[in-house]
Design a protein around this nucleic acid. Sequence first.
DNA 1: TGGCTGTACTG
DNA 2: CAGTAC
DNA 3: GCCA
DNA 4: GAATG
DNA 5: CATTC
Length: 825
Amino acid sequence: MFRGVSALFVPHADASCAPPKHNTLGNILAARLKELGGKVAKWPPNPDDVTHVVVLENITTSEVARALDMQKTAPASWTPWKRVVQCAWMQMALRREWQEKSNELPDDSPFAVSPPGAEPAKRNVVRGEVPCTPPKLRRTNQDARRADGGAEAAAAATAGSSTPLPFVRSTGEANQRSPRWGWAGRNDVAEQAASHAAASPTSLALQPYMTASEQLEHEQGLFTPYDRDAAAAAVAFLRSFWEQTGVGVADRFDEAGAGAAEAAAASSSAPTASKFQADDPVTSDSDADDAGNEASGHDTMRWTNPNLFVVQNLNRLKDHMGGDGRGPDAGQFKEKALMRAIGILSRSPYGTEVAVAQRQIKSANEILDKKHGGEHNNGVGRKTAEKVTEILETGTLRRADVFDGSNVSMDGGSAAERARVMDALTGIWGVGPNIANRYFLDGVRDADGLAERLPFLRRTAQQKIGIRHRADLAGPGKRVPRAIADKIRKAAQDSLNEAFPGTACTYLVGSMRRGKVSSGDVDVMVVVDSARGDGTDAPRRDRNLRSALRRVLEGLHDRGYIRRLEEALAADPDVPPDYTLSNSNDGGFGFEGVGRGHEPTAVAPLDGDSEDEDVEEREENPPEYDAVSGAAGAGGSKKEETLYIYRGHDDVQREEPITWMGVAHEPSGGPYFRLDLKVYPRRCVGTALLYFTGSARFNRALRYWARWSPRAELVRAARRLSPSGPGVLRVGLSFTQSATTKTRHVGELHAHLEQPNGFRINDTDLTPIFVPKRVEKEVVDPAAKGRRWGGNELWQCSRTYEWLSEADVFNAMGLPYIPPFLRNM
DNA sequence: TGGCTGTACTG
DNA sequence: CAGTAC
DNA sequence: GCCA
DNA sequence: GAATG
DNA sequence: CATTC
């Protein structure tokens, strides 16, 4: 097709104008171009050898000229212009070749780059991504599809909440639903447990709060009973800390706990209280992590909430606030702020006025007038209050109207359309707000539209899987029933038992462990006890965490739950040419998913003493166990003076957690769902379970509280755990760069430490932290370029602990054990 | 004005 | 790094 | 958006 | 090509 | 990934 074409690739306007390298879009295109008989012009180019100038970005010809100038190419020789076209043209040609076996070059005029002097086209495209104008053809197709979708949606709307939920058993479940704890009061703990037991046939009758996986814990002596009231109080307390919201509300746990418990009990006496369960684990169609949505004005809100109207309006606005990830101006936090108000209102059994009286939400005026004598507003401040006032007074929210008005246009389409498209696109696994936004600006309107472009997009493995299974995975109604999750867990356990009897244990975690009867995905955690078994310290391949994961995957494959990569590709009739080529990362396991850490990566010198080691040599001669165990996270082997970082090498003992995220379905067929596997060493079962059980909000609340709340008990707990008192320490410095905080050792800080005053929690550790107070000496590497200790950095105890149960973790923090089903925040 | 959980991985 | 995910 |  | 951000 | 070494 490209015979006679000699293309010069221009990377992009602000690049250094080096020829495109590696796996860039330019390279992919260049490779295909050569395959199809074209030529790729060398850089710097000889004008005579070039028939097309292909730009990887939507730039003007003058910018191209500037780019060429920088390469010392006489601009004069480039006039008159050859065809300067967007790379989309080549992509289109390639697609045509692939789809239609066409032999003709497509018309390039729609892809011509605007001439010098013309208004530069808007740069609404990621570098290297398919730029700008979508081909006409697809636009009409889209219109057709959109019309269809609209009709369906309308039909669904008239039918009420009858949208079929593919994964949820259609019979029975609705009738098993019962109110849960929380607003409804203390008895509901028991009720919840009962319904939980009903939902989980394998639960022990005697201990109704145990899920199947807890039963397993119990058998292993890991389960700890709990004090129901204390746990409920602790949850109420932590909840008040949800993301900074409740800071200062109560400094003392007991006071706050008692107060909250009281409030809960009081509200339970309200006649209609049980109607307002925002995230009933049994009832809810979505995970608790989405709470707020559930109370939204959509068809999930079946009960009558006096605040429904206000909530609906706030929610309309919230839907347009979707975030820019965690960036500095991330809408994430605005969204969260709105959700706080929405949550308060939707949980309240009273109308707004009553809620105001109860201080569940302050009245707009009150907030505007004063600060409540120092009290906090539950994180609902001026702007939100104004919005509530507006809704109450005018019956609508202008800002939301503006967004929702279909005639309001913004880059790439109307605001209302944007919200819809963003929803559809972010529903794809691997596509977040930023990427979705780019696609929107790019003219993509739905997942199918994105799928059409897939061959010409450099995308992550996740996104490819996400797109391939978009029909099964996307959308709010797609849920996995507990029974299937149980089967998967059991299959995993069985596979391990066959291969490595007695050394590995599986848990069903995620929302399932919190007692939900269905979930958006299946989370299974594997714990490998590498030390158990033959009684020696010697590493064994079969105790390797990675081996365990491989074994689980193979077992799941043998039983028909997951596919090998080849099977997935073979089953897909529409596999585009480069679908398999680029950057697919399956973790080296060969199954349809994204594995983590499969190649040995780095051998870095420790303390800068030794020369760089040869990675390949190390691979050929796997290091002895002693040398490697240090690398595995136990503190480094000073003897070797080299820190080995292996990403899951089968020959070494690997003690770092390993994950696999992929898709699975029932052996008999049926829709695919997301499956997450994570393997941990035994020493962190407790913290790992805590993390992987969630909920996300619970984790955030807990971590935030543990780190920042200078509660006496917390400090005492930290001191109890900490091996050393105050002293002079050397610490690294961390700094913020580009909206993310990086820790890098750019210097040393000699400071007096006070007692540890909090904890830092992650999925492998709970460590006491110190805030260095008086700085004595600061030695900063010039490379730090003036960056200094910010004052908020923490020194973290380097000692590692064994967290063999969740109860240990709670204990260490001075918290009562909080059972999983109470963690649905 | 900076922080809002903490971490690992891709491309 | 920016982005995504858990 | 809210808070310190 | 590996390392870096 | 894009860029630098």
